[in-house]
Design a protein around this nucleic acid. Structure first.
Length: 288
DNA sequence: ACCCAGGGTCGTC
DNA sequence: GACGACCCTGGG
């Protein structure tokens, strides 16, 4: 396949660092020049911001522009979203200034499900390592500029792994969850194509919750970070709990703050943009 | 050396 | 609903 290059002129709300380090994805890594290289779908690409332009080079399974349009959520106006959210309160305004270049990627549903099952009670360096090892062992190799990259395996490819294989790759107790969920999806007991067509977010969420290893937090991450793209869900993890408690609740012991209360505050304040608000807050709190 | 936390979920009570 | 257990790794 031939390399393709596209340049996005004067894009607003697009900072590679913000996009790739706000916690939504695990397969993008920095290069010496500050650009990011990653694998998504059957594509490998490098993203660099030069002055006000975004330069994207890589090998793509089809038209690079269409693929990037979809993956980087380019048809959505983050300027408008940020305007709306900034007016809500000063905290959010500050977090948006901090992470002004965040965009929510439209990541492959299957990959997002498995990735976030692996994320449970885990840290980011280890999550990334596990996903790389899974891809190297069960995905397809792509060579670009003399370097090897590996696609994330599809259901069928990953079903070649038994529980012990997964354990050897370092998944720990998540091995059986990935194993069970892979089979359930491969047998189409949960049909991901059907799931993408379902409009009712609650129904989609309930189906995701039927997968082993998918609880409320992971389900919300899948809804928000995959191509299901539900912006109104509010994944609550330790960081979001921390920041919400600090800003609005101010309880001594943050672990005692109920999820219901956080959800209610989020919904009352951020409404149907809760998910994006969560991402600005998360990035702000974790980085700053 | 030891302890603890890390984008939680599951089984049990 | 609350609680402990869970595999593994990096940082204090």
């Amino acid at each position: 396949m031939e390399e393709q290059e596209i340049v996005l002129k004067d894009v607003k709300s697009f900072e590679p660092k913000h996009i790739f380090e706000c916690g939504q994805c695990f397969r993008w890594n920095t290069e010496k020049d500050g650009s990011y290289t990653g694998v998504f779908g059957k594509n490998v690409a490098n993203i660099n911001k030069i002055n006000n332009d975004i330069v994207i080079k890589g090998i793509f399974e089809g038209n690079a522009k269409e693929i990037c349009n979809s993956y980087f959520d380019l048809d959505r106006s983050y300027e408008e979203i940020k305007r709306k959210l900034s007016s809500i309160d000063e905290y959010l305004k500050e977090s948006i200034e901090y992470g002004k270049g965040i965009r929510l990627l439209n990541q492959d549903l299957w990959e997002t499900i498995i990735s976030f099952i692996i994320s449970a009670n885990n840290n980011i360096p280890r999550i990334k390592g596990i996903i790389e090892r899974i891809s190297k062992k069960y995905g397809k190799k792509i060579i670009w500029h003399n370097k090897e990259y590996y696609t994330f395996p599809n259901e069928k490819e990953l079903s070649m792994a038994n529980v012990q294989d997964l354990r050897k790759l370092g998944l720990g107790f998540r091995d059986i969850r990935v194993y069970n969920t892979t089979r359930k999806i491969m047998k189409k007991e949960v049909n991901l194509d059907e799931l993408k067509k379902e409009k009712d977010t609650k129904k989609v969420r309930d189906i995701l919750l039927s997968l082993d290893g998918v609880g409320p937090k992971v389900a919300d991450c899948i809804l928000l970070f995959s191509d299901l793209k539900r912006l109104d869900v509010f994944p609550i993890d330790v960081w979001v709990r921390r920041v919400m408690n600090e800003l609005y609740i101010k309880q001594e012991d943050e672990s005692k703050v109920s999820k219901k209360l956080i959800e209610k505050i989020a919904y009352d304040k951020y409404g149907n943009l809760s998910g994006i608000a969560q991402q600005y807050l998360f990035y702000w709190k974790r980085e700053a």
